[in-house]
Structure formats: C-alpha cells, structure tokens
C-alpha cells in the first residue's frame, strides 16, 4: 500500500492502477443502474405536476417536502414494496385521494423541479387517468343508478359524464354509463375512493397505462371531411348494399288479456 512512497513506480503500475480504478467505478455504476431501471414499472400515482416518469428520478431527491406540505396527508414516501423507488412521493387514491388544493402546496414546496412549478391550475394536473376497469361489477353497468363516481368528481360533467345506452338485458331500460374524458380527468382519484364496491370498479392509472395512442399517421376520415368541407376523394362509386334476405316474421300471437305472447316485461 505504500506504493506512493516507492520511487520505482513504473508506467505499468500506473496503468494497472488506473485500470483497476476504472473497473471499480464501472462496477458501482453498473450495480446502481439495476434499481434505477425500475422506473418503468411505475404503478402508484405521483403528486400533481410530477414531470414525466422517465425524468422524475433525475430530479426528485426524495426529501419529502411535498409530503410535509400536503394538508390532507394524501402523499406518502414510498417504502420498499410500494411499487415506486424507495423514498419517492406517491399516493394511493383508494386510501386518500388528492383534494386538488387551488394553491397546490406540494408543487410550491418542491425544491428540485420534480414537481413542475409551471402547473398553477390544479384542473390542468395529470396525475393519472380514471378508467372504469370493472365493467362487470360497476353498478351502473348492471343497470342501477349508483352514479357515485360521477357525483364526487370535482369536474362533474366534464371529466366524467353519464352516457345513456340501451339496456340489452331488460330490453326496455337505459344504462347510464360513467364515461371518463381523458383530456379533462386530473387523476385525483376521488371516484376511485368513493366507489361503493368492495374493490373499486373505477381506478386511476398512470397516463401511459390508461390511454392508448394512435399512430402518428392515422387520420379520422370524418374529421378530415369536416375540415375540408367535402369528401377528400371525388367520384366514389356508391355500390348497392347487399343485405341478407329477411325471413318473413310470423304475426305476433295475441293473448286473451290483450298483450302479445313474445313480449315479456
């Protein structure tokens, strides 16, 4: 170890030492790169204003200032097993959703820019997107008028609307389907928190997992037509539509009470 005091240190020794040093530094970098890659698995929700998940870990120092300034104890720092890198802020909508404070104190507190200060209107936040994943369990899908997710939504009739559909089961009722509009939904999670089921049928997911993306070259023909004011292609030959021949329907049998036999209300 006293090589330093040995005057006979050769160029070979120096190169060998430099090589060992480079290997050691590379080893540390390689080992640390393993947990660093975990960012792709993000599931839990980030605070409002959080920059893109691939950049988040280049900025967040895991100091917890956003957590301290959250007045509703929504935000937590991740522990091992929470699905986020240890020490980074997140929230679980089903436990405590974001209350969407107008002054956004968590963003104001962030010293690093991991939460982007350019977010000043909480309604523009994109913490995630609510998705009605439980289409077999959602009470509105079953034909009831639960409507709870729709009613608790801070952006009622914008982020969630009730869309009327035909109830195929009864044949004569309507379904009021809670429908999320991703351009308005902030991902606050109040709908997921309020869902009356044992396991929420509506869940907030990170944006990338919740929303598909059209190919950049895709065009919606009907929109293009409207923009152009006419069909984009001239002289389309409209061929006759050939339909299967409809079998003749027998006349419905009348019941003595005045109703029809086939109609079961």
């Amino acid at each position: 170890m006293d090589r330093r005091q040995n005057p006979a240190m050769t160029r070979r020794d120096m190169l060998a030492g430099a090589f060992r040093a480079a290997c050691g530094a590379g080893l540390v970098a390689a080992l640390l790169a393993v947990p660093a890659r975990r960012r792709a698995e993000a599931v839990a929700l980030r605070p409002p204003g959080a920059i893109d998940d691939t950049d988040f870990l280049s900025a967040c120092v895991r100091c917890g200032l956003c957590v301290r300034d959250c007045p509703y104890n929504t935000l937590k720092l991740a522990e091992a097993g929470d699905g986020q890198p240890v020490g980074t802020p997140f929230f679980t909508a089903r436990n405590v959703p974001c209350e969407m404070c107008e002054d956004i104190p968590c963003v104001v507190a962030c010293p690093t820019g991991a939460l982007d200060k350019s977010l000043t209107d909480i309604k523009a936040a994109k913490m995630g997107v609510a998705v009605l994943v439980g289409q077999e369990t959602c009470l509105n899908f079953l034909g009831l008028r639960c409507d709870v997710c729709y009613r608790v939504c801070p952006l009622i009739d914008q982020a969630i609307t009730l869309e009327r559909h035909h109830n195929e089961r009864t044949g004569k009722h309507a379904l009021f389907i809670p429908t999320v509009h991703t351009d308005k939904c902030t991902g606050c999670g109040k709908c997921e928190k309020a869902c009356v089921l044992e396991e929420a049928a509506i869940k907030v997911l990170p944006h990338a997992q919740a929303v598909g993306m059209l190919g950049a070259h895709y065009r919606l023909g009907w929109e293009e037509k409207q923009k152009a004011g006419k069909a984009l292609i001239d002289g389309i030959i409209d061929l006759p539509d050939r339909m299967p021949e409809t079998p003749a329907m027998p006349a419905p049998e009348r019941l003595p009470g005045g109703g029809f036999k086939e109609f079961k209300p």
Binding site: G24, V28, A30, L32, P35, R39, S58, A59, R62, V86
Partner: peptide
Amino acid sequence: LLVLVGVLVGSAATGTIVWEAV
C-alpha cells in the same frame, strides 16, 4: 473515491440520481 466516480458516471449514464437507490 471510486464509489463517488461510479455514482457520478452512473447518474449520467442512467439519467437518474442513482445513489438515492441505496
């Protein structure tokens, strides 16, 4: 010092604050 260099190289290479993982 090697660990320090590794941390700095690792941060640049992965685009994350790597030392905070451990």
